[in-house]
Simulated scan of single mutants.
Amino acid sequence: MATITYRNASCIYEGSDKLAVDSLDLDIDDGEFVVLVGPSGSGKSTALRMLAGLEDVDSGSIEIGGRDVVAVPSKDRDIAMVFQNYALYPNMTVAENMGFGLKLRRVSADERRRKVREAAKLLDLTEYLDRKPAKLSGGQRQRVAMGRAIVREPQVFCMDEPLSNLDAKLRVQTRTQIAGLQRRLGVTTVYVTHDQVEAMTMGDRTAVLRDGKLQQFASPGELYSKPANVFVAGFIGSPAMNIATLPITPDGVRFGDGSTLALERNQLTLLHEAGLDEVTIGIRPEQLEIDPSGGVEVVVDLVEDLGSEVYVYAHSGSGTPLVARSNSGEAPKPSHTVRLRKRPEGVVHLFEPQTGERITCRAESGS
């Protein structure tokens, strides 16, 4: 096991004038499970490949266990990689696939068999050790790929979207197995995904990247409740947070049709002190409710009934899209006009309209 440190680590691909990873700073604790998440082209896979030695670090440094590994060949970094495609040898059995890396390292046959059996037991693969990959399901093949990494007993696991090729049910099952396995093994793990559900449910902390730059590095709970900027606010959470830039009134913010969304008194004071005429607000769908007594008037566009919960997609008179969560029996019909208001316990997030950065209230900053 080992700590991992990215210090101003950057990478640029040949022929490009834009950094794929731009001055990345991360401090990953020993035994921690960290997820790198972001949209396509955000630099998350490049950052992982820089750690694994598969991409050059053009500036800055990366340390594993306190040792700078920028000039260290990939094979000498004591890491194990699990890829999106299983990369199994079709002519080898499960046991042979799992032990092949050890064989290349000239580990004795008895030691290889012992380590393969132990990993197979962890992964519920014992009964499949004599099968070829063609006789396995997608989830089983991915577990074999993980087993091949586990028998190496590395300092660091690098996982590059390992669940992307699985169907929805298998993704949930394998996601749980990977997270549970990492907890038992205690190996420092860096996991790349574009799936925010994986990011929110698997990692101890999650790094959100955009255009090669780190946006926020925090626990899933903090990402959800205190997003650092508008991008994180809109990217984390499904359905996405409602975000709009609106003029400030004495009581809150005003939509184009004249309806008002009320803000807390300390938020209004903060906005007044900042001298802002308008502000970008964000509010989660579950923190809005349908209430005929007041709030923002909207026209319902779509009702998404998921069984346990219902999401109402609508737009205000000024065209601002809004999403609210509703109880199944109370959901309105499309084209109906309803009113949305913030639930009593709901939170409205404030962002600087020019930079998109979070405006922090005194209660949050601890001052």
Rank of each mutant, 00 (worst) to 15 (best):
M159P: 12
A95K: 08
S42P: 06
T206W: 10
L129Y: 05
D56P: 12
R358L: 06
P239E: 05
K226G: 03
Q216I: 00
A9M: 05
N85Q: 15
G43Q: 08
P334V: 11
F351C: 07
V279H: 02
M202W: 01
A120P: 10
A324S: 14
R325E: 09
V187W: 04
V156S: 01
K121V: 07
C361V: 14
A80I: 02
E222H: 04
N91V: 14
D277Q: 10
G212T: 03
I290P: 15
A80E: 01
S318Y: 07
A47R: 03
V338H: 06
I62W: 02
S316H: 07
G319M: 13
V70I: 10
L214E: 01
V69H: 02
L270P: 00
N91C: 08
P220N: 07
D251P: 11
H315A: 15
D78T: 07
V82Q: 07
E111D: 15
A168S: 14
P73G: 02
G282V: 10
R171K: 15
V57Y: 03
V94S: 07
D257T: 06
L26D: 01
G237D: 08
L136T: 09
G212I: 02
R210D: 14
I150D: 11
R141G: 07
S164D: 08
M159N: 04
